[in-house]
Design a protein around this nucleic acid. Structure first.
Lengths: 221, 221
DNA sequence: AAAATCCAGATTTTCGACAAAATCGCCTTG
DNA sequence: CAAGGCGATTTTGTCGAAAATCTGGATTTT
């Protein structure tokens, strides 16, 4: 039954897997994405792969000049700055909408996601069955919970792709266990500001939090 | 030479043409997009069409459930509200960035685009060689000029697709010549607010302008 | 009669081989 | 050393067919 779960199309699976490989750095920036190679690597035909790369191009993970094939999108300070300004804009809007809806579920979801994040950090620190991927999943879930109740499908979509695009940079600065304390502290402070009841404080804390990726990967001169 | 300009791929051409047909209403909301039919309609094979539909799905012009094929995205008040809130957010941000850069070129571009728009309206009114498509092109150029110098590739991309998505609704309210006067007046007032030198005034005028599509297609209760 | 099941035809998705067009690398030439 | 030519490679698109899935209606069951 769980043999070849084709409930999703291969093209959809390819999109997810390639995003993961780009974000995790397995596919390096500017790396050539030759269909022939990918066919082996992902074990599928050319059609779904072409479709996947095509979609990834409009999502911004891949570049594609007319008859020059596909490449992993390059990384640069300018790009991270663009990602960050867009994230600040999107999450500010989404957070305000989540707050003014005074949806009970919102606070529940945020606290639950924070708790999961806290537990994952703890398990990672004590070395009991939790890897970087688990932490990354919990982190994304927390940030998604913050905007989840904004009510706008487009804001949610933007949040998702921008998060992944930022994650590709954030990975560069989160490589040691020693950063774990600081990592959790930042999110604890963010949670406090979010639940404090003052919208301006919440928004400010969130946008500053998003700036952290930028300022730690490319420190101010 | 101008026989079959292959400088662009067929898939790219297909994306543009299908967007045009969706925005102009030739492809109605929720209409089934069968590849077999489109092959005839656009005179190309299945591969570039699949690729185009796939990309249009991530852009939001087309929907696509797993093994149920492609459809033109449906229209609804909720959708236009979502489009509008995203436009207000994006254009506010892009306008502020264009303004604070105090780029000489920005004002030049905006005024030039406005002049073109004005001339097109005039030619349309006097019936001398200008059709709805010309007006629409000039209108899009004007709105694009307003955000053109924001410096953010992502904001520009969002502006472009959101504009087209809004245009599908705006078309519903612009069907008579009698609306032309009001149309131009709105844009004249907007131009004045943009060039007035006060950022808050400019942003307010622009966001209210964007609201017009929403309030005229779905009047407040 | 309403609900569940089943079946055949149509559609979507994927595959693989091939052809046309464009690009790339390398070589020669001026 | 720059410019141009040429073959090999790669990308893009075509075509036909196979595998998986959906659709709609008929049949059976409750």
């Amino acid at each position: 039954m769980a043999d070849t779960p084709t409930e999703d199309t291969m093209a959809n699976v390819a999109v997810q897997r390639i995003i993961d490989d780009i974000v995790s750095g397995q596919l390096e920036p500017c790396a050539k994405l030759r269909i022939e190679s990918l066919k082996e690597q992902y074990g599928m035909g050319a059609s779904p792969l072409r479709e996947a790369l095509s979609r990834l191009t409009t999502l911004g993970f891949v570049t594609n000049e007319s008859h020059r094939g596909f490449r992993v999108a390059p990384m640069s300070q300018a790009d991270l700055e663009d990602i960050t300004l867009n994230r600040r804009m999107v999450e500010r809007e989404a957070l305000l909408r989540s707050l003014t809806r005074d949806d009970d579920e919102w606070e529940v979801g945020v606290v639950a996601a924070y708790t999961r994040l806290e537990r994952t950090v703890e398990r990672l620190r004590t070395g009991q069955g939790a890897d970087g991927a688990d932490l990354e999943r919990a982190h994304k879930q927390f940030h998604t919970a913050i905007v989840a109740h904004c009510g706008s499908p487009r804001l949610l979509g933007l949040h998702d792709t921008l998060y992944d695009q930022a994650q590709r940079y954030r990975r560069l600065m989160m490589r040691g266990i020693q950063d774990l304390d600081e990592f959790l502290d930042h999110h604890t402070a963010l949670l406090k500001a979010l639940l404090g009841g003052d919208a301006d404080t919440a928004v400010h804390a969130l946008t500053e939090h998003l700036n952290l990726t930028l300022t730690s990967v490319y420190p101010k001169p």
